[in-house]
Simulated scan of single mutants.
Amino acid sequence: MIKMTTEVTHKLYTMCMIQDGTKVLLMNRPDKKGFPGYIAPGGKVEFPESIVNGAIREVKEETGLTVKEIVFKGIDEYCDPSQGLRYMVFNYLATATEGELLNNPPEGELLWVDMKEALNLPMQDWFKRRFPLFFEPGTFEVSFVWLADTDETLEATIKNYGV
Rank of each mutant, 00 (worst) to 15 (best):
L111F: 00
T22K: 11
L101W: 05
D149S: 13
L133W: 09
A156G: 14
L25F: 01
A40H: 07
D149R: 12
A118G: 02
K116S: 12
E136A: 12
G64M: 05
D80T: 03
R29D: 02
N28I: 06
E152A: 08
K3W: 15
G37M: 04
E117P: 03
Y161A: 03
P105L: 09
P30V: 06
G54Q: 10
T6H: 13
M17G: 03
F72A: 11
L12P: 05
G162M: 12
L65D: 05
I39D: 03
K60A: 06
I39A: 07
V142I: 15
K33N: 14
D20R: 10
K11W: 09
P132Y: 07
D114A: 09
T9S: 13
L65V: 05
L133K: 14
T150F: 00
K3L: 09
F144E: 04
D76K: 13
P105R: 02
L133C: 02
D20W: 04
L101C: 04
P137R: 11
P106I: 06
V67D: 10
K23H: 12
F140K: 12
I18T: 00
T97M: 02
P81E: 05
R29P: 00
K23F: 01
D149M: 09
G162P: 04
E136S: 13
H10K: 12
V113R: 03
K33E: 09
G162D: 12
P81D: 08
Q19I: 12
T63E: 03
L101H: 03
T153G: 01
